[in-house]
Design a protein around this nucleic acid. Structure first.
Length: 555
RNA sequence: GGCGACGUAGCUCAGCUGGUGAGAGCGCUCGACUCAUAAUCGAGAGGUCGACAGUUCGAAUCUGUCCGUCGCUACCA
């Protein structure tokens, strides 16, 4: 909420997962989990949150994958879109709209932006030489050309990169190039493509970036680096038949809009799709045209230039739409020192993670390890350690110990508040301070620190219980025991609000036990409310079930 | 090759524009407690802040070189 307490529109824009394969825990920690924590917090403090994303279904890698599997691109897309939707469901990622770039609406919005930029002269048409497959009668994207790598003599090198030595290539460098489609030798031929004139925005983007405050240093550094090197105009069409068609027909067939030009437009088109679905087609404007609106883009660091350069350039060129308020890109989660990659079998896919751990437990472990400042090394054992030694031991156990005592010594009901002593009110003041600390951290997208502050409050309640020893008071001074336990219960009820953006499932369970809490505050649990014998909020992970898993195998 | 980072206690990480004797969590040691998922709480041990050189009254923090790791390099997204 804004400082004057007025609800503010907050657009939570989240990287569009690419439907070419399973997403892994690195993606989850990089974008989806932080976005969800942030969105849940913003909703709870009363802001008007719209959290949008969808599956990115176009582009060359998907056609390559389809060819390799002997199926259509649609088959690939349908398979992984369904998997993603299932992932989000199981993880409790609270989308307001999760769609895909394959909708008519998205194509229409993309065309609108393309045509506006074309009309304003920010898109122009250029001629270049490109390899052409005469047998297939089509131009070839770099990835569809294979040949021998000039650096390492690997014979299966692709036109964009050699997978053997890892160097990036231009297709002209390949020795004995051949078409991946027909095997014939491709020949250079003139082709036309549309270019986004990024150079038009060199100065305005530089000024904009210079005026950003509170952005992460690595995000700003990287973006300014692009500006300093000089922005190059960039082709935004490709020789492909899988993608959004070009809304002007003077390029001929076999051309599509480049995925990255249209994928970022998804943030806008998904918002419009949501509005239409609300029977309020103009509602999207509140997040895109209202100067008080905030837009926060959750992405991994590999997507930085698309969100801090290209998309802002498109928005500036289009005119009248809000540029990103912040792009708190995360670094990488690494496994065995390398970037997680489902395709190379490094790290766990989201599916695999969910098969091993409860959703809240997995969310906790990842949130505690978010790569906000630097790459963070993760292993399955580290996840289990976070769950067992931190989540279960400090928080899960606290809830269980308090509920058990209330059940056992207060006649199975929440005791009246009674007369609280100084140490009681001091504890509650600590919890209230924690609520403010956590809120400040989450609002600045310092999610690790926010979680840590919440856990510190839980540890303070444990210390309070050790000091006040209600189990002894229950024998000597039952009235005092009831006051202590009522105090502890109130503290728990505040802390679970601190943790609710991170742990939605267990928070919902506590809604059932303690009654729901609205807003970002600590409330007293209603006296007289029955408390049954509790069962643990989280199960401990048995480490022996993890033996021989992914990160113990050669990577 | 070029660009951007990173290398801080056993592990995972904080340390903003240089300045009270270098931090957190976990692990470890010792102690307390026994309500609680053998959970909790307290105390303690443990670091030449990658190496070397420099700037400075003073550097983990600035500069340079080197070593190591990683990412990006605009047709992967």
């Amino acid at each position: 909420m804004s400082s004057n307490g007025v609800a503010r529109p907050v657009l939570v824009a989240v990287a569009w997962p690419y439907a070419s394969g399973s997403r892994h825990l690195g993606h989850l920690a990089g974008a989806y989990l932080p976005a969800d924590v942030f969105a849940r917090f913003q909703r709870r403090v009363g802001n008007r949150v719209l959290m949008v994303s969808g599956s990115d279904v176009h582009g060359t890698p998907i056609t390559v994958r389809a060819d390799a599997d002997g199926v259509t691109p649609n088959d690939i897309v349908d398979r992984y879109h369904a998997e993603f939707v299932d992932n989000w469901e199981r993880l409790g990622i609270s989308w307001d709209r999760y769609t895909s770039t394959g909708t008519d609406n998205h194509a229409a919005v993309t065309h609108d932006i393309f045509l506006r930029l074309l009309g304003k002269g920010h898109i122009d048409k250029r001629t270049s030489d490109q390899y052409y497959d005469e047998e297939a009668e089509r131009f070839l994207p770099d990835r569809y050309i294979e040949g021998t790598c000039p650096h390492c003599d690997y014979t299966e090198a692709r036109g964009d990169q050699c997978e053997s030595c890892g160097r990036t290539l231009d297709p002209e460098e390949l020795i004995n190039p051949r078409s991946k489609i027909t095997g014939s030798e491709p020949v250079p031929r003139q082709t036309e493509h549309f270019f986004l004139r990024l150079s038009d925005f060199q100065e305005s983007l530089g000024d904009w970036l210079d005026s950003r405050e509170g952005w992460r240093a690595h995000v700003l550094n990287f973006s300014k680096g692009w500006i300093e090197e000089g922005l190059q105009d960039r082709a935004i069409t490709r020789d492909l038949d899988w993608g959004i068609d070009v809304p002007v027909d003077d390029l001929g067939p076999g051309k599509r809009i480049y995925v990255w030009f249209e994928a970022v437009i998804g943030y806008l088109s998904a918002t419009k799709e949501w509005a239409t679905d609300q029977d309020d087609p103009e509602a999207w404007r509140d997040w895109w045209e209202n100067p008080d609106a905030r837009s926060v883009y959750f992405i991994g660091k590999d997507n930085i230039p698309f969100h801090t350069i290209i998309w802002p350039a498109m928005l500036q060129g289009y005119g009248g739409l809000n540029l990103p308020t912040d792009v708190p890109a995360n670094q990488y989660v690494t496994f065995r020192g390398g970037k997680a990659s489902a395709s190379r079998g490094v790290g766990l896919t989201i599916d695999e993670g969910l098969d091993l751990f409860e959703p809240d437990a997995l969310r906790y472990a990842l949130a505690a390890s978010l790569p906000e400042q630097s790459d963070t090394e993760l292993t399955v054992n580290e996840i289990a350690r976070r769950i067992n030694e931190e989540l279960v031991a400090t928080w899960g156990n606290l809830v269980n110990r308090v509920l058990s005592m209330v059940h056992g010594t207060c006649g199975g009901v929440v005791p009246p508040v009674g007369e609280r002593a100084r140490n009681d009110t001091a504890l509650l003041a600590d919890v209230d301070a924690a609520l403010e600390r956590v809120a400040a951290h989450i609002d600045r997208v310092e999610l690790r620190a926010g979680l840590q502050s919440g856990m510190a409050a839980a540890a303070a309640v444990n210390a309070y219980l050790n000091a006040t020893e209600p189990w002894k008071a229950a024998r000597d001074d039952p009235e005092r025991a009831r006051v202590i336990l009522g105090t502890a219960l109130s503290a728990v009820n505040g802390i679970r609000v601190c943790l609710s953006p991170y742990l939605p499932f267990s928070n919902a369970a506590l809604d059932g036990i303690l009654g729901p809490v609205e807003g970002w505050c600590r409330t007293e649990v209603e006296p007289g409310r029955p408390i049954e014998r509790p069962s643990p909020l989280f199960a401990k992970v048995d480490p022996t079930t993890l033996d021989g898993l992914v990160d113990d195998e050669p990577g």
